[in-house]
Amino acid sequence: MSADTLTQPPAVRAVSRGRARRALRRRTVAAVLTLLVVAVFTVSLMAGDTFYPLDDVLRVVRGEQVPGASFTVGRLRLPRAVLAVVAGFSFGLAGVTFQTMLRNPLASPDVIGISSGASAAAAVAIVTLSLDETQVSVLAVVAALVVALLVYLLAFKDGVVGIRLILIGIGISAMLDSVISYVLSQAAEWDLQEATRWLTGSLNNAAWKETLPALVALAVLGPVLLAQARSLSAMQLGDDTASALGVRTERTRITVIVAAVVLIAFATAAAGPIAFVAFLSGPIAARLVGPGGSLLMPAGLVGSLLVLVADFAGQNALGTRLPVGVVTGVLGAPYLIYLIVRTNRTGGSL
């Protein structure tokens, strides 16, 4: 590398230096975000009503029996923290792929009704039909895909225009939210925990049987989406330019939409549609890493961090215990208003 640098003409050196500087910033941001996720994850295993030292936590994770800690950390806190990381990453990753592909920060799956679709299906499956976790996940995936297709078809008129898709999505989303409310109001036993989970998202019911399907979905679909990062960057230049650069735009679009929708559905089936995480993670990641690089990985990390911090704050910092979606909702709503105002002024892009 250094011998290379010496023989390079100055123009090439300037180009490679500028690129290296921006790449360094992206790597630093990713490293810091990863460290923060690990740190908050660890703290959320240790702290709570009872404090367990790091040593106890590590022993529980290793599978040893520790009186008290084995139940509290192993059965309650660990699946909850893992679900926070997994759901946050899924929402952040899927959200930013939608925003990048549709070139609009409002085009996030939680704004255009996809999360609500998965949530409504999960609520029906659990509250009305009493299905098990696998069936719930499958139903949520099917519903999310159907809603995505429905929004796409309703918005289709000589091609899909971003803003029409967003407005139709917001409408569908409102309808689905009322379906959720109706289902919950018809439930035999009115359960506030269930209600908050399906309306705004909550980790209060997190156990391994909910966490595992979401974890598997992320392990499979996360790499699929990350592999499309470069094609997505090319598609930001418009479909024609991307095709001219050798990107199969239709194939990329279908792969990305299906993978992101399924990812969202699994995360939603486990944690509910945690408000605004998909919507916020991409723009926050964009501010952090600066222009140029792919946002997929940083947005996933921001999503994990948002959910971990919001859930920890909701559990411990605020006196009353708040579900995670209430905390992220408070963070996200002002940003949504800001974006709508700005979109009104500029026509808007990410």
């Binding site: 690129r19 921006r22 230049l237 690089g293 892009s349 990410l350």
Partner: peptide, 12 residues
Amino acid sequence: SPVAPEGIIVGD
């Protein structure tokens, strides 16, 4: 009419 993503640097 190619589209430039907001804020993109010329070199990138």
